[in-house]
Every structure is written in C-alpha cells, then in structure tokens.
C-alpha cells in the first residue's frame, strides 16, 4: 500500500530523517515509535506531502506520490492539531471535507454517518470553543476519516482523550483497519502500541533502530524468563531463580532447557500450580535498551 524508499530529509542543524525505508501493507496497523525529536513528525510530513524529501521515494500502491491523486487517499491527524474555535462544528466538518475534495452532498452523507456513529448529532450548531478537549479530539478524528482515506496517519491520537473516548476511537481504528485502511500510528506510548499495532518500527535520531512484527520482536529480545506461582516451596529443580516474591518465582532457563520440564517437576512433586507463564519483555523495556545512551533517549525515558 505504502512504501518508503530511502527517504532523507536534512535540516541545517540535524538529519531529521536519515535513510528510512518502510513498507506498510493494506489493512495493517503500523506503529511508528520513537522519542521526541526522533524524526517521526518529519517523516509523517513527507508521507503526507506537506514537505518534500531531499531524496528517496514515497510510493502509494507503487505510484510515486502525486498531490492531486494521493492527497485524497490520506487522512492525517497531526500531533499539533486544532480547529477553528469560532466556527460551528457542522460547518467545520463540512469545510475540511470539501478541502479533501468531497462535494457538498457526499460530505453531508459522511458527516451524518460519523456524527451518528459517535453520538455527535446534537453538536452541529455548537462552536469548537464550547467543546471539552475530549470532545474536540473526537471531532478531530471524525474530520480526519470523513473522506474515506486509504491511508490513515495518526500522530499521538489518544493524547487528551479520556479512557472512555480513547476506547471508542480505538474501536474505530480497528474497524477501519478491518475495512482495509492502512493505519500509521505514531506515538511514544508503548502500552498503546502493544495493544493496537501488528507491525512497528522504532526510530531514533532519524534512523530505524528496530522493525518488525510485535510478537516476533518480543521473542527476539526475550530472556527465557518464566513466572511460576505455587503454594509450596519450590525444591529440587535445577535453574536460576531471579526473583522470589511470596509464592511467586521468576526463573531464567538455560537456552536448551525445556519449560515443560519445570511443569513436569511440579506435577511429580504434587505442587499446586497457580500460574505458569513465559515472560516476554515489554516493548518499553526493549526500546529503552535500544535507545539507551543516545542523547535523545533521556527525554524518551521521562
């Protein structure tokens, strides 16, 4: 759907985007991660055609980016976003839809559909300044997806949203992805990424540090840790106990050791097993490990 080939954007003081290549499939939710100032926004601005790359290509369905055609394909919700405060909500949605190339009738249908879907029908004549922050974020989301984009680019979409509205938007994102919309989800909030994205790329200082399927990455960085909780004391088992907490053990296995051997042991000893699971590293841990000791990572950790 969307392919980035050796994209570069250099500014006078820094290499904002330094040779990034990515591939985003149709209907996939792709997480773009990185600390502040890593180059996410610069990358997204090139993908949306707001700025031009110094070199490299942006391909939509194999075609090089062309404002006249592909602008309509894209729905972009920038990190720095807002609306006209004094404008009525209905008019605002209509205006932004028409700027995306919809005619009045199409735009009206879409607005009605989305306003109904997200319980916003009574908002039409309100002004943005009368809305709460969460409400205006919801409106912002609607104006981004009104024109049925094929590629949806969301930069920190959940910032400023309460849990209830976050959940609503999250469900909408899943729904759109099921309909075949490719979604780029840029954030520095790892727990959201784990929940939502299938594929991710971690960017630091303009470069891709890490890329791939979320589960695959977690497996790549796993440390063979297992959590076991039993009522009895664990005895007579050969392994490195990393941590013991009440009745809970965290064990690190050797590479050739079978996890089933522990279960076997527990059963043989007639232990009462409450929990047994593999501990995969969280993305947060992996990323901190990856960007550690770089200048930008300090902000990231905060």
């Amino acid at each position: 759907m969307l392919t980035l080939v050796h994209l570069k954007k250099y500014y006078a003081t820094q290499k904002a985007v330094d040779d990034i290549s990515l591939k985003i499939e149709k209907g996939k939710i792709f997480g773009l991660l990185g600390p502040n100032g890593a180059g996410k926004s610069s990358l997204l601005r090139m993908v949306t055609g707001i700025t031009l790359p110094d070199s490299g290509k942006i391909l939509y369905d194999g075609q090089e980016y062309n404002q006249d055609i592909h602008n309509q394909w894209i729905g972009y919700m920038p990190e720095e976003r807002g609306l006209y405060k004094k404008m009525k909500i209905g008019e605002q949605a209509m205006y932004l839809a028409r700027l995306k190339g919809l005619n009045k009738i199409e735009a009206m249908q879409k607005i009605n559909y989305w306003f109904k879907r997200l319980d916003m029908e009574s908002w039409w004549n309100k002004k943005v300044e009368d809305l709460s922050k969460g409400m205006s974020q919801k409106l912002q989301f609607v104006t981004t997806v009104l024109h049925n984009p094929k590629v949806l680019i969301l930069d920190e979409p959940f910032s400023g949203l309460d849990p209830v509205n976050s959940e609503i938007i999250k469900q909408e994102i899943f729904e759109l992805s099921k309909q075949g919309v490719s979604i780029i989800f840029s954030t520095h909030r790892m727990e959201q990424v784990e929940e939502i994205c299938e594929e991710i790329a971690l960017i630091n200082q303009g470069k891709i540090v890490l890329e791939g399927n979320v589960l695959e990455i977690k497996n790549r960085f796993k440390k063979n840790l297992y959590r076991l909780a039993i009522q009895e004391e664990l005895q007579g088992f050969e392994s490195n106990i990393v941590q013991k907490n009440m009745d809970e053990y965290i064990l690190q296995f050797a590479n050739d050791q079978e996890p089933n051997s522990l279960l076997q042991h527990c059963i043989n000893q007639h232990y009462h097993i409450k929990t047994f699971e593999e501990i995969l590293p969280s993305l947060n841990e992996i990323f901190i490990q990856q960007v550690e000791n770089t200048q930008a990572s300090r902000q990231f950790l905060n």
Partner: peptide, 11 residues
Amino acid sequence: NRIAEVVISSV
C-alpha cells in the same frame, strides 16, 4: 489554533 497543519495536509 494548530489548524494550519490539518488544512495543509489537504491543500
């Protein structure tokens, strides 16, 4: 109001 970037992604 931070609407500029939203609009500029369309025009």
